[in-house]
Design a protein around this nucleic acid. Structure first.
Length: 435
DNA sequence: TCTGGGGTCCTAGGACCC
DNA sequence: TCTGGGGTCCTAGGACCC
């Protein structure tokens, strides 16, 4: 007899906020938000901040005054910290099952099909308590027979007070109740467009959606929509994916600290992004087949001429040499740059990645390729040891992103006014934990 | 003044081929 | 009246996720 599938979705509560709180316990029960890069938008909110009506994605400047009045604690995002905490959570979860999929920085799917139904609830609570005790991060657990239903159960685990952050859906009756309680726009895979369309047809709850004819869903929401429909009905269409598949594209882009008009400044930013991007590329042992560079002015400034352009080239052969990628990127940028505009963002995308092993032969047959390969692996080692800023190209400029003082920073560098200490990665941070 | 930064998958339609 | 009929590949754009 085939065992029924059972997925748990473990989701960290207000993850970025929780990470900051681990090292600032006095912020428990205080409203806290974390801002996106450049201190642009609110991207994480504590319960208390949500209660103040602060919405996800709100531009910081719109709620700044209110947050000061309400004494909301504000943090710039600190991705080194969050990445590190995320790895701790995953390593704790992997004690519970080897079959685990890292879905995002704050979510994991776990395969729990080996448990008997009556064990599931208690197991969920054990997961929750262990993660909290070992890492300081509070999590919620949703369990069901499909990933889509597990996501839904997770939402309800947070929402239903009596669930105490853990909810398992077993029987058809429990599933129906959960579906009726959930709005269609909260279903995993239903975004704004589909939700709008469905609501016009009076499909308001997840239950309504689950009653829709397959033909209509296939026609209007493609096969991904059909998968969602079937999963809501309890028919698994998506397996656990324990291995993170290699990325097919890798992108590095940032807004500037303030609008830029000079090509030289933008070139500094782009070259720095390119080096980062190439480092990510080599970390997954891939080579890029194409390069795209994009450059844009402020899309919100209706009075200015909005300029948003991108250029792509195919490389003569796949490469992961940042020397070659840098020269390509700079060339694309120069072609696209128009004087007299106020630019706010530049970025690079490395396209159609292929495994480095597949182009190895070609590299060997080419002397430059072989030299580049050795140089790149030396650079990677040195940077890993001494930090990303240890080795730079002249075109990147000589300013350091780690400098906090305004005059030591290049104009393109991000604003991070509310950055917490690098608790987990520096001596200073570690000392802070002890005190 | 101030509005993030990554990714994925699917489809329609055009180009091109026999 | 009726304009062949498939294939495949590529790209742009749209939808979704965190």
């Amino acid at each position: 007899m085939a065992t029924t599938s059972r997925f748990a979705l473990v989701d960290c509560n207000s993850f970025y906020v929780s990470c900051e709180r681990v090292f600032r316990p006095e912020l428990e029960d205080v409203p806290v938000v974390v801002l996106s890069n450049n201190d642009g938008c609110v991207i994480a909110r504590s319960k208390e901040a949500k209660a103040l009506g602060i919405k996800m994605g709100t531009p910081y400047f719109q709620v700044k005054d209110m947050m000061e009045r309400e004494r909301v604690e504000v943090f710039s995002s600190n991705y080194e910290l969050y990445g590190d905490m995320s790895r701790r959570v995953v390593s704790t979860l992997s004690q519970f099952t080897p079959n685990l999929e890292i879905y995002s920085i704050d979510e994991c799917f776990l395969d729990l099909s080996h448990l008997r139904p009556e064990e599931v609830e208690a197991y969920g609570h054990r997961i929750r308590h262990t993660v909290e005790r070992w890492t300081g991060i509070p999590v919620s657990v949703g369990v069901a027979c499909t990933k889509t239903l597990a996501k839904l159960a997770n939402r309800l685990a947070k929402k239903r007070a009596k669930a105490k952050e853990v909810l398992a859906l077993h029987t058809p009756a429990e599933i129906e109740e959960a579906l009726r309680e959930s709005s269609v726009k909260d279903v995993w895979g239903i975004g704004r467009q589909h939700a709008k369309r469905l609501e016009q047809l009076n499909v308001v709850t997840a239950w309504d959606l689950s009653r829709m004819p397959e033909g209509w869903v296939k026609k209007n929401m493609a096969v991904t929509g059909l998968r969602t429909l079937l999963e809501l009905r309890g028919q698994p269409c998506q397996d656990l994916e324990p291995e993170t598949p290699d990325r097919k594209n890798i992108c590095t882009s940032r807004s500037f600290g303030r609008p830029l008009t000079e090509l030289e400044d933008i070139a500094e930013a782009l070259s720095t992004h390119t080096v980062r991007c190439a480092t990510k590329l080599r970390r997954q042992n891939s080579c890029a087949t194409g390069v795209t560079v994009f450059l844009m002015t402020n899309r919100f400034a209706v009075t200015e001429n909005v300029y948003c352009n991108s250029r792509t080239i195919q490389l003569p052969r796949p490469t992961n040499s940042e020397l070659e990628l840098l020269s390509r990127a700079m060339h694309l940028l120069k072609n696209m740059f128009r004087p007299g505009k106020r630019y706010v963002k530049v970025g690079i995308i490395l396209n159609d990645l292929v495994p480095a092993s597949e182009v190895q032969l070609d590299l060997f047959s080419n002397q430059d390729g072989e030299k580049h390969k050795k140089l790149m692996s030396t650079l990677d080692t040195l940077r890993q040891r001494f930090g990303h800023h240890a080795l730079k190209y002249a075109v990147q400029g000589n300013k350091n992103e780690k400098d906090v003082e305004e005059e030591k920073r290049a104009p393109w560098m991000l604003q991070k006014k509310f950055l917490s200490s690098p608790y987990t990665t520096s001596l200073k941070g570690l000392l802070r934990i002890k005190t």
